[in-house]
Design a protein around this nucleic acid. Structure first.
Length: 373
DNA sequence: GATACGTGGTA
DNA sequence: TTACCAAGTAT
């Protein structure tokens, strides 16, 4: 959906030059954004903003945390669910940890969810339920780094702060034809981005640069012909745009192996564990099992039973390794006591509360429970 | 500065 | 199938 342009004059004069003033990059980008801003549930579009509507800082914060290393498409549904369940930061602060972790399941980078709760509670207990309105104070909040602090300050509070995310890095590397590989180029790209940041409409501008990177100045096959910065772009002129930004090569992912035990009690309860707060999938529910290592570890089962192997292993790729997970299942009688984990009855366990790798294991095990009847 | 930390979409 | 990529932060 397109926002109504707030500069109708630009429409009525078809021969008007694209540049408001020659060389005024931010103005050119804002003019583009007025017509091409994408619709997002957390966004107050340029027209609504011009009409005096203000974004809710809670919505901006929540969406920005969710958007860290995550696509808009993936975030949309999570954002709508979170705001429906917890309409204010005070509601979120009062929520149970397990409930919030369960709702975050599937979105990844679970430290974000742990810090989300910490941050909400700091805002309520330490700031009277109001988010700080400046970059420095925002930066002290859990889970809020340089990008997110600048995003909230500019979008929610009209501060002229510079957001530097992956989009901005790519756009700056191309606009100025910078060949230094990331992450070493970050300071230089940040400096360029800061030079372009306007004092007028900083929130719209921040979103505009990121939208430009997401829709026009894309990693592959950038649509330079449609770009409001076509003329000033050095990399476009030199033909280097598709190769920028350069990045230092990544290390290959090793393969790790593991075992997961999935026990189903006759009343439909499953044997689950809450993972420790630190480390991979920290704070999330999971199946008892082995650590994940280069060689197959053989841990003791969490409960005595007739364990049956599931024919297919669960395969999953994390940020820094591939995992192949062997699954063993067992039916458990009422009253049996596990040595590890807790039986969660159906009313206390939704498969959607599981992180994806655990959900994959569950889906494979479920088939074997059904087969066995 | 380097590493740990998820996931789903795409070529 | 594999590898890369996306609105980063914490340590």
């Amino acid at each position: 959906m397109r926002e109504t342009p707030i500069t109708p004059a630009a429409r009525t004069k078809p021969d008007a030059p694209r540049a408001t003033r020659p060389g005024d990059l931010s103005a050119d980008l804002l003019a583009w954004y007025d017509q091409h801003a994408r619709d997002m549930p957390w966004r107050t579009g340029p027209a609504a903003r011009a009409a005096g509507q203000r974004p809710d800082p809670y919505h901006i914060w929540l969406s920005e945390v969710m958007l860290q290393q995550t696509t808009v498409a993936a975030v949309r549904a999570y954002f709508l669910r979170f705001t429906a369940l917890w309409p204010t930061v005070a509601d979120l602060a009062a929520a149970e940890d397990a409930r919030v972790m369960g709702e975050w399941a599937g979105l990844g980078y679970y430290a974000r969810a742990r810090n989300l709760l910490k941050c909400a509670r700091v805002v309520v207990a330490g700031h009277g339920g109001q988010f700080p309105d400046n970059r420095a104070a925002l930066l002290s909040l859990p889970g809020v780094g340089p990008y997110t602090a600048a995003a909230i300050a500019s979008i929610a509070f009209d501060r002229s702060e510079t957001v530097v995310d992956g989009n901005v890095e790519r756009v700056m590397a191309r606009l100025f034809d910078i060949h230094t590989p990331l992450p070493a180029a970050k300071p230089e790209l940040t400096e360029k981005a800061a030079l372009l940041t306007p004092h007028a409409r900083p929130g719209d501008y921040a979103q505009a640069v990121m939208d430009l990177g997401a829709t026009i100045c894309t990693p592959r096959k950038p649509a330079c012909a449609l770009c409001p910065w076509h003329d000033p772009c050095l990399a476009r002129a030199r033909g280097t745009a598709p190769d920028l930004p350069r990045k230092t090569p990544k290390k290959a992912k090793p393969i790790r192996l593991g075992i997961a035990y999935i026990a189903r009690r006759t009343d439909g309860a499953y044997l689950l564990e809450r993972r420790p707060d630190k480390g991979l999938l920290g704070g999330m529910l999971g199946w008892p099992g082995s650590d994940w290592a280069e060689t197959t570890p053989v841990p003791a089962p969490p409960i005595e039973a007739d364990w049956q192997p599931v024919p297919e292993e669960a395969r999953h790729t994390f940020t820094h390794f591939h995992l192949r997970l062997q699954i063993l299942t067992a039916q458990i009688d009422q009253g049996a006591n596990p040595q590890r984990g807790t039986f969660l009855p159906p009313e206390d366990f939704r498969p959607s509360d599981l992180p994806t790798v655990m959900r994959k294991a569950f889906d494979l095990a479920h088939a074997s429970f059904v087969d066995r009847n």
